[in-house]
Amino acid sequence: MLLRAGHAVARNWSGTSQPEAMKAPAAASSLDSRCAKFVWTCSTPIPVAMKLPTGCIQNPPIDVFSAIEPVFRRAMHAVITGGNMRMMGSDQAVAEVTPFRAKRYVSPTPSKAAPDALYWSVQMTAVSLQRDRASFMRIYDHFSPRLQRYLRNLGVPESMADELVQEALLTLWRKASMFNPARASLGTWLYRVARNLYIDHVRRQPHWLPIQDGLDRLDHAESDRRDSQPESSFDQDLLRQAIDGLPPVQAKLVRMCYLESKSHSEISAELEMPLGSVKSSLRRAFAKLQVSMRTPR
């Protein structure tokens, strides 16, 4: 059976008014639709033929997305890795699909669902290949306030934090082609960018940025051949749960380390805790969090 599909229902992930979001490329819009979990009335075949399990279309209503998700993920992975460009950014592809019509609301939860790594990968692909400003602004709307809060927590004055956030996002715009979703999520990538800018501008270590650029290029060159755990293969929800499940002392130490950028000695002095205890607690916390990252989906 041939899957029929078309333009997605325009959907705003952050729940805010975002005019730019309405100008999404076809592939991004199609992806937007997958968390909306509608049963759609379909009219026109999409260019990529995908087989569905028996009964998907014949016996509605069902959750179409759940049924096609594995196939859809593989198709989108091919798009991201360059194996199939037909769905991404092609005017021809846009012309071949027609709008969905929502028929019945199925799940009460997706409106609260956060966009996942795959969603951001698609946005980055659009930025990298098409210089797509709408995708860029979706990234901006989601990440810039979080980058700002992160920098403010580190004690960066507000005006400088604003400048560093803009610089981080400009870095994303300029180096979008360096982003490899098989190695790191966009959140991790932007965290690195913001941390590096903080160390360069605030801690005034002028040699830090070129060194990190060098390490990034080394990772970029190795990513195809290295037999290691790519971040995209683990479920970030498990890591979030593992962080939330840390014992209070370990959780506090981890947050002081990351969100206040305090050295072990500073943490030890502030909490009046022996340096060895600070380190052993952080070691245990890191080990637990690594286990969550090694848990298969």
Binding site: Y191, I243, F286
Partner: peptide
Amino acid sequence: LDADCIGGVLMLQQR
């Protein structure tokens, strides 16, 4: 990279 993943998640968890 593992440690950076943790940093990324912590950064995104903020309100």
